[in-house]
Structure formats: C-alpha cells, structure tokens
Write a protein that binds this DNA or RNA. Structure first.
Lengths: 107, 107
DNA sequence: ACACTAGTTAACTAAATAGCTAATTAGTTA
DNA sequence: TAACTAATTAGCTATTTAGTTAACTAGTGT
C-alpha cells in the first residue's frame, strides 16, 4: 500500500466526509450517495479511490454493496506519516540533516 | 485554522516532499526550489499553501526567506484527524450513529 | 421471461491545479 | 544610483479531477 495514495485519497473534502460518515456504521453505496446529494457514479468513484488506498473495505451482499472503514490500515498509515515528520525519516530527511551539518562546519 | 486546508495541503506529493525536506532544518525558498528542480514561482505557491495551512512558518532575514516546520500545529491537526476516525466525532459521525440505531429498532 | 433495483463502467464536459515565463518588489553591494 | 540576487505576483497553458448522463452488469421478485 502506497502512502501517496492515502494522502491523495484524503486530499478531497467529499472523501473525508464519506469517511466520517462511515466512521460509526457500514453503509451501502446508495445510502451514502443519497446523503451527499451526489450521483451514484460520482460516489462510486470516490469509494474506489478510498478502497484503493486501503481505507475502506466493501462486501457484496446480494445486490447491495456494504462499505465500511478499514481501521487498522488507517492507523498504520498514520504511523507512517508520523515517522516522516517526528522521529526517524526517509532519504529527504537525511539530506536536510546533511545540509544542517555542512552549515555548522561552514560558520 | 481549518482542517480542510491542512488535508488539501497534504494531498500533493510535491508538498509532502517539501515537508519531509524541511523536517530536519530550516531552508530558504531558493534552496528548496533548487533541490526539487522546480521553478521558484511554482515552489513559492506550494510554500504559501503550506503556510496557510499552518504547517510551515517563514521568517524574512535580509533578502532571504527562511522556511521551517510549524510542528505543534501538525500535532494539533493530527489529533483532530484522529478524533474524527477513532473516538468522538462531528455531526456526520452522529448521523451515522442515528442510522445504526434506527436499524437496530427496525430489525 | 420480464420488470425493477443497486451498483459500476464508459464517455464526455467544466472547473480546478500545477507548472511555466515574464514582470515586480525588496534587499545588497559596488 | 546602478547592477545584482532572492522571492513573490501576474498572466498564461496544459493537465488532471470532479462531476454529469447514458449504457451496462448483476441480483430480486412476479
């Protein structure tokens, strides 16, 4: 699961609202579409983005598709996010550190 | 500070890279632009988005503008994010709960 | 089989976004 | 003052994205 897809998924107000709406109970695609006064196809697309990002899961029951949050992935994602900004970090972070070191030597 | 502006700011790969790059040290606009092989105006726009979201702060020193992370806001933001998905929540969350209740009565 | 409902896919349009270059503002230095 | 550097703003273009309607797939019920 790519962290970028998660942030892209979150970078949309309608999708954040969908997530909040799903936070208490699972809902069918139709129930969500009705709540947000949005066409079903538009909603279907948002749900797919969220599902690709691993933030939502779906289960087909008869002709209905029930959507719900995939919590544990959310937490893993947030952890990954925090490690970028707070403690250890990726290559770019190390690059920044190298610049800071070079500066201390220079002055 | 609006939570939506924060997520909009994060919903961009270049901006997430800029944040990671800034995570170790403050940098001037020019240093960042150079690193990302992007024109200064394009970068200036990203920095403004990040600053409006309260994730980055700037300080002018002579002709240079030094940018750095505004950490405490990041944490406040993340807390707000977590409260949406994990424990208590906003109006939409309550709406979802109401639906769940109605269902329990109906069945 | 037929009609009906839930959902997704396809094809398209309109609006927002990311990037550029050129021009401008502000600070430095000769 | 003039020349130079850092950064932002203005104005533009190209791409992406969000939304639409129409068509299609699949499940339910008569």
């Amino acid at each position: 699961m790519k962290i970028d897809t998660v942030f892209d998924a979150l970078g949309s107000t309608p999708r954040r609202k969908i997530l909040a709406y799903l936070s208490e109970t699972s809902l069918t695609a139709g129930e969500i579409a009705e709540r947000f006064d949005m066409s079903k196809p538009a909603l279907s697309k948002h749900l797919k983005v969220l599902e690709n990002a691993g933030m939502v899961k779906s289960e087909k029951k008869g002709q209905f598709v029930h959507y719900s949050l995939a919590d544990q992935n959310m937490l893993a994602t947030l952890h990954s996010f925090l490690t970028t900004f707070c403690p250890v970090g990726g290559p770019l972070k190390r690059e920044g550190a190298a610049i800071a070191r070079a500066r201390r030597k220079a002055t």
